[in-house]
Design a binder for these strands. Structure first.
Lengths: 149, 149
DNA sequence: ATACTTGCAAATCGTTTGCAATACC
DNA sequence: GGTATTGCAAACGATTTGCAAGTAT
C-alpha cells in the first residue's frame, strides 16, 4: 500500500516545526518573526523543561543564531502571557520558566537550584482552608524543598 | 492576696522590650546595636506580619529613628539566618519576610501583593510524592493564589 | 507603506559590598 | 583598645525601556 502512494500524496516527514510555530504564534497574536520562531522551536516542542533567560540565550547561541538580550526577556514574557510558558517562583534571584503549563507541582533543591516537576496527582490536598472573604482561589502551588541526603 | 504583695516583689509592667531584645540578639551572637535593637523591637514582638526592606524602613523612620538602607538589608538577612524571620517567596520582585517562623502556609493575592497566613493544620496533604533518589524533603510550602471576586 | 519588532545601550530596581568612621564590650 | 557594625555611596545582576533601524504583512 504505502509503496504505491502517488507522489502528490506523499507528505513530507513533517519537520514542519517552523511552520507549526509560526501559526501557533499568529494565533496568539504574535508576528512570527525570526527570533520568536527560533525561541518557539526550542521551547514549544512539547518537551517539559525549565529555562532562565540566561540558559535560553546560551541555547540560542549554540544553534548559531543570535537574539538580543532584551528580546529574549520580552519574548519570554510574551510567551508567558500567551500561555505558552508558566513562570515558576521558587526564589527571588531570577525568573524560571516552565514549558509545562499543565497543573503540576515542584520539587526544588536550593543547593543546586534545580527544579523537578511533580505530576499534579502525586499530591493530594485533602483539606484546604476557606479563602478569605471576597476572594476566590485561583491556583494552589505546592513546592517541596529538598536537599541532598 | 494580690493586694498584699510587698513593693519589692511588684514587677514593673514589663516594657522591657529593649532589654529583652538585647539578650535575644546576644544569644544569637549578634551585638545589640542601636539599629538591631530598634528593628528587633519592631519585628520580634510576637505579632505575626510580613515586611519588606522598604516597609520596614518606612516603619523605622516613622518612629523618628534612622537606619541606613544597607543596614536594613543586612539586619533582615541576619535575623533570617538567626531564625527570627522567615523569607517568603511568592514572586521575584523583592523579598518578603514573615515574623511567623512556625510552620504555616500562605494565601497570596498578586493584584494587591498581599500575603495572608494559613495555619499549618488548615492544609492537609494526604498524599506526597516520593522525593527523588538521594534527596530528603526539608519543607513543603503551599501557596494558594487568590483574586478578588 | 505601515505598523510591529529588534538591537543595543542606557536606565531601573532591589540588593550587596567596600571602606572609613563609629559604637559596643 | 580592639573588633564588630554602621553609613553611605559605588557596584551589581536581573530585567525593562527608549529609540533608531529593520522586517513582516
Amino acid at each position: 500500500m504505502s509503496m504505491n502512494v502517488p507522489p502528490e500524496e506523499n507528505k513530507p516527514p513533517a519537520p514542519a516545526t517552523v511552520v507549526t510555530m509560526a501559526s501557533k504564534l499568529r494565533v496568539a497574536g504574535l508576528r512570527p518573526t525570526r527570533q520568536r520562531v527560533a525561541i518557539a522551536c526550542l521551547l514549544l516542542d512539547g518537551r517539559h523543561r525549565h529555562v532562565t533567560a540566561e540558559s535560553l540565550t546560551a541555547e540560542i547561541n549554540a544553534t548559531g543564531l543570535h537574539v538580543a538580550g532584551g528580546t529574549v526577556y520580552n519574548t519570554l514574557n510574551q510567551f508567558t502571557n500567551a500561555g505558552f510558558l508558566r513562570r515558576v517562583t521558587v526564589h527571588n534571584e531570577y525568573s524560571l520558566f516552565d514549558t509545562n503549563t499543565a497543573h503540576h507541582h515542584h520539587f526544588y533543591d536550593a543547593a543546586d537550584d534545580r527544579l523537578i516537576d511533580i505530576p499534579s496527582d502525586h499530591v493530594v490536598l485533602s483539606r484546604l482552608p476557606q479563602a478569605p472573604d471576597d476572594r476566590d482561589i485561583t491556583r494552589v502551588d505546592v513546592i517541596i524543598h529538598v536537599t541532598k541526603k
